[in-house]
């Protein structure tokens, strides 16, 4: 049997000096090619979960495996990190050089990739995130959103199978955020497994699966429309809904038959046009 891409087997984790379990007996399987969102309020355990995927954090009990390799075994960490790329919240903490193409080349260089191959990987990665024209520019001239795209390109140059975005859009403006989501959708369409930890419910409407974390446990694991129509769950886990879902709710209260499937304003408009 082929091992699952990512497997959490009864994973528990506590931060140093804390009695509270940041992850509490979490079991989870993520299949190759999925586009998964992980949501939850501050301190729910969503980032802790993300940091377990590439062995940045190690379980106190239980096991995390990536392609069958356990993160607990130190020899597995390098191959796991070649499979899993993580992009974090603050773009300024992730860029190591001053010139953009050098930054993207940094990872493959460290892994001993031959120079011609590096050139190709850097160009491909910059193409994918739409930043090829900026290759020779200085990093400090970029906006936050552009820096995050460079951070992603740096990961892509390592040719990972899995990209984990750990609240990577939190510090971006709305345009930066939507551009980044478009980039992720494109990468997913090309076969990359994308796992997106986020606060912003607008970002998860295109995911095929949403995992809701609450007090270190998985409170729900379902499709976005099921999550957003479960009022008890939303309240219990203090989750927001996309503004479009709130708008649809207002329209329904007024007596307009808008369906639960309308998670975006464009979809509401389409449904209304059929009624008008």
């Amino acid at each position: 049997m082929v091992p699952a891409l990512i497997q959490f087997d009864h994973v528990t984790y506590r931060y140093e000096d804390s009695v509270k379990k940041a992850l509490d007996d979490v079991c989870l399987t993520i299949a190759d090619g999925s586009f998964v969102a992980v949501v939850g309020h501050n301190g729910s355990g969503k980032s802790t979960l993300a940091k377990h995927i590439n062995g940045l954090l190690l379980p106190e009990s239980g096991e995390v495996t990536v392609n069958g390799l356990s993160t607990a075994n130190e020899e597995n960490i390098l191959p796991i990190r070649q499979t899993v790329g993580i992009v974090f919240q603050n773009p300024d903490n992730q860029i190591v050089t001053t010139i953009i193409e050098e930054d993207v080349a940094f990872g493959p260089e460290n892994m001993g990739v031959p120079p011609q191959e590096i050139r190709k990987r850097v160009d491909d990665a910059l193409d994918t995130v739409g930043m090829r024209d900026y290759a020779e520019r200085a990093v400090h001239q970029l906006s936050g959103g552009q820096k995050q795209r460079i951070a992603i390109a740096g990961m892509l140059a390592l040719r990972p199978n899995i990209l984990v975005m750990d609240e990577a859009t939190a510090m971006l403006d709305p345009r930066g955020r939507s551009d980044l989501i478009e980039t992720l959708k494109k990468l997913h369409a090309h076969g990359l497994t994308v796992i997106m930890v986020t606060q912003y419910m607008e970002e998860i409407t295109d995911c095929d699966r949403v995992i809701v974390m609450h007090h270190g446990k998985i409170a729900a694991d379902d499709q976005p429309e099921a999550i957003f129509s479960d009022q008890d769950l939303l309240k219990e886990c203090s989750l927001d809904v996309p503004e479009a879902v709130r708008l649809a709710e207002t329209l329904r209260t007024t007596g307009l038959p808008i369906s639960d499937h309308a998670l975006k304003t464009e979809q509401i408009a389409e449904e209304l046009c059929r009624l008008l």
Partner: peptide, 20 residues
Amino acid sequence: LGLSVPQATYLGMLLKQKGF
């Protein structure tokens, strides 16, 4: 300008574009 508007405003805009 790289900004957005409230979703209700956006819905109104979309409906106008469709001729309402």
